[in-house]
Amino acid sequence: MSLAKRIIPCLDVKNGRVVKGVQFVDIRDAGDPVEVARRYDREGADEITFLDITASSDDRETIVHVVEKVAEQVFIPLTVGGGIREVKDVRRMLNAGADKVAINTAAVFNPEFVKEASERVGSQCIVVAIDAKKVSTEGEKNRWEIFTHGGRKPTGIDAIEWAIKMADFGAGEILLTSMDRDGTKIGFDLELTAAISDAVNVPVIASGGVGNLDHLVDGVTKGKADAVLAASIFHFAEYSVEQAKRHMASKGIEVRL
């Protein structure tokens, strides 16, 4: 018996509603975030992640209220990402009841922010979200670059080097999303996940591409992920979190049941 691999349902929240896009477009409504979070908690989710994809910063208060409401009823760790740019954003989310914040674009433009934030609130609260896309061509050695703005803007930064740097700067965890796989339901980019997981000493959450329960298993066994994140397979009730855990357990993976 030892540390369990975690299953983390992810809620993309826009203007206070759960939505799910396919490769960041084609948004579908998936419900009230508080209700969805409560369902996942009942089903045995190990954590819940909210990504606020609200476009306008004027509407950011909405996610704060969502987090406050969820934190009053759901007693498992909550991570919030999207629009976290300054230490005051970090504090606001933690004060609302989040346990961790995910920093993405702001880390790319200002890596020192990750250092500052982790020194102020502790590494355990700081997740660096990395959106990576394969840039090597067939036959070349694998290479992934990080992208910002929901996968639209390339940065020229190597994903593995970036993950190592972010861990050095105080990230307590890496949330790794394959932009090639996100929304495709063909499984995680396992090579990318294993490469990052081997490169850093902090936990890695695999994200992007889950379409069935075997994909979750592969994320842990082949991708060496410490946690697996999925959205649409849970939102549209294709599978429950509990089913996912039982399936993983049947394949010899330690989970919390």
Partner: peptide, 10 residues
């Protein structure tokens, strides 16, 4: 084993 020890343990 990763550090921090993060997650659900017995």
């Amino acid at each position: 084993l990763k550090i921090p020890h993060m997650g659900w343990n017995n």
